[in-house]
Write a protein that binds this DNA or RNA. Structure first.
Lengths: 365, 365
DNA sequence: TTGTAGGCGTTATCAT
DNA sequence: ATGATAACGCCTACAA
């Protein structure tokens, strides 16, 4: 890393070197009172047009800008909302964030982000921001039972929306999908292709999207009387990283009696399964079918295109923001639970059950 | 309305009346003055241990939490910084954001994000937040000449750092890579593999990472006396989307005299080239070599693994935050220009120049 | 329609 | 070491 030097100069911020223009200076300049200036600033009518004009001219002349912390203090609000997720490098969370922004920004709210990285300590920090009035509300993208400690006492006290992952017992608006059903339908779909040994890849976290999908999967396994083995449930790490997905699926694919299909709780993990299978010379989907969940952009960036459940990430983000703003503005209403639809996108990573994988591998070697 | 010593306000959701505790209530409870409470809260010593103890007990008993807008007003700071990027769904920006968070959060700063989507209007909003004291500084990830209008008058007035994309004339700290050199070295590398017709894919924006890489590319084309044609420069859309990359490269690959190699200013675009080539039955890298830039995680998620320039995204984020905090705290220092290193990651999408692509295509058909 | 004045909850500057 | 009190900049009854 090199270091080049540019011109020397000091920042001159409000605190010292620059004259900070306040509402009273504007008032003086315009020859009116601060109250009038404030009224003009807040467009609350009740001001004579020529007075308003004078004030506006003064504002421009003095380059006045409103001091938000001051206004916020007075109005007891912050004009910002918090979005708490594990991270934003996962395209799934990034897309939700986009939806939230698109809804909240036009409404005049700023977005504050915080990556918990699965650390419950961040949940505490989240509440701190609510308590400290730094944000008017929060959207939690990865709420789990682990958050009960800090969250429970604050439910109903602050505007909080759970999105995607949630804890049913926490009484907040929820914007979710029926995770159980995705798990069930994944199996159902694979069974329709003739698969009987179907694996499940979750993640080392207590997210409802992991837990409930596993439940849906298990229920389907029972209903369809399929092979039921603990060895068929594997887990990537809590953050759904590609590498951990590869690590998790490897022993299963190289072990005895491997499955002919797998359902993964995240697209990135599904991609890791496809990748690892191909590395091992196992053809997808001829010998191994993979179903993902999320439908992120990367699912269609290389062949075989991923068969996956499309969740309306962007829309979930928007709806979460809508619900949160509703809470913040105290629109009298019950806590709604909005269940977004999903749909299976059948593409190229799934196919009819054919030869046994182990057999195929041994043939090749 | 009041209840005993404490004020009551309808704080959040319909259900809860929340008692808002202020510093003066704590003072009353502890039998001291607000000044003392404040001193304890700010750990500025000068308080007798037993007094401190009393205050702390009162804080716990009343569940007091500091009111940040009030503190911010008084201290004339916000404790937040702004990160402005085109979007955060591109893993490149997401990774930089991660670096910024990891540096700024421990320092007590919150992160406010804003997606400009290339809209200069957002630049204006950015300055608004600086002026409104909602943030103490800003990191701009996509600064271009187009931003001169709103940015120029505020340079030196507010703490601003340009990261990755930048305008040299704007006198701010910069955390960048030598984009020109990536363009030059990409060609150099491809030449070493025997390529003579090398294309360039940029994007419809004025980012320095697009403009300067093109310049480096052109210089190398001249230096190595390679084919020099306007038809060899193509552009994806301003946001580097996968689809636009496909659209841009298609006519080139199917047209007359296609190149045998291409350098793309972003990994996502490079992936789109690989994808489109494969769709057309053109083998990568046997018939068509592709070099990307960024080295995002997705570059190694499917074969052929992308040969690309690794930019230290995360580190650039951290360094940007470091520089910004330095500006905010007015550490007397010059505006530095930190040039981060990059390195070419040779993987599977590049190979020796072989048969002419058009020829290969015609052979196949 | 406009002005006066009293907070909002802190911190910081004085005294004591 | 502690306390009284004046800002910080704005909003908003209440008066005029």
């Amino acid at each position: 890393m090199k270091l080049g030097l540019c011109k020397i100069s000091m920042f001159c911020l409000a605190r010292g070197l620059v004259i900070v223009v306040t509402i009273s200076e504007v008032a003086k300049e315009a020859g009116v009172s601060v109250a009038t200036v404030s009224r003009v600033l807040n467009h609350c009518g009740k001001v004579r047009p020529e007075t308003e004009q004078k004030v506006k001219e003064a504002v421009v002349k003095l380059q006045y800008t409103i001091n938000m912390p001051a206004r916020n203090l007075r109005k007891n609000e912050s004009g910002a909302i918090l979005v708490l997720a594990r991270n934003f490098t996962n395209p799934f969370y990034a897309k939700i964030l986009e939806g939230i922004s698109d809804e909240a920004n036009p409404a005049g709210y700023n977005i504050l982000v915080s990556a918990s990285d699965g650390n419950p300590k961040m949940g505490f920090q989240c509440i701190q921001m609510l308590e400290g009035r730094q944000v008017d509300g929060a959207i939690l993208l990865n709420c789990t039972e682990d958050d009960a400690v800090w969250l429970k006492p604050h439910i109903g006290k602050y505007p909080i929306v759970q999105c995607c992952d949630f804890v049913a017992a926490f009484d907040t608006p929820k914007v979710i999908v029926d995770h159980f059903r995705t798990g069930y339908e994944a199996v159902q779909y694979l069974v329709s292709l003739g698969h009987r040994r179907i694996a499940f890849m979750g993640a080392e976290n207590k997210h409802s999207c992991t837990v409930q999908r596993l439940e849906g999967y298990k229920k389907a396994i029972k209903d369809f009387e399929l092979d039921e083995e603990d060895a068929l449930y594997i887990s990537a790490d809590a953050n759904y990283t590609f590498e951990s997905g590869c690590r998790a699926v490897y022993p299963m694919l190289t072990g005895k009696n491997p499955p002919t299909a797998i359902f993964c709780v995240s697209d990135v993990l599904a991609l890791s399964c496809i990748f690892e299978a191909k590395e091992l010379g196992i053809r997808v989907p001829e010998e191994f079918s993979v179903v993902g969940c999320d439908d992120v952009e990367y699912a269609r960036m290389c062949h075989p295109f991923l068969s996956t459940f499309r969740l309306p990430c962007y829309e979930m983000g928007r709806e979460s923001a809508r619900q949160l703003l509703r809470c913040i503005h105290r629109t009298p209403e019950e806590y709604v639970e909005i269940i977004e639809d999903f749909s299976l996108q059948v593409r190229e990573s799934t196919g009819m059950a054919g030869k046994d994988v182990a057999l195929a591998v041994s043939e090749r070697t």
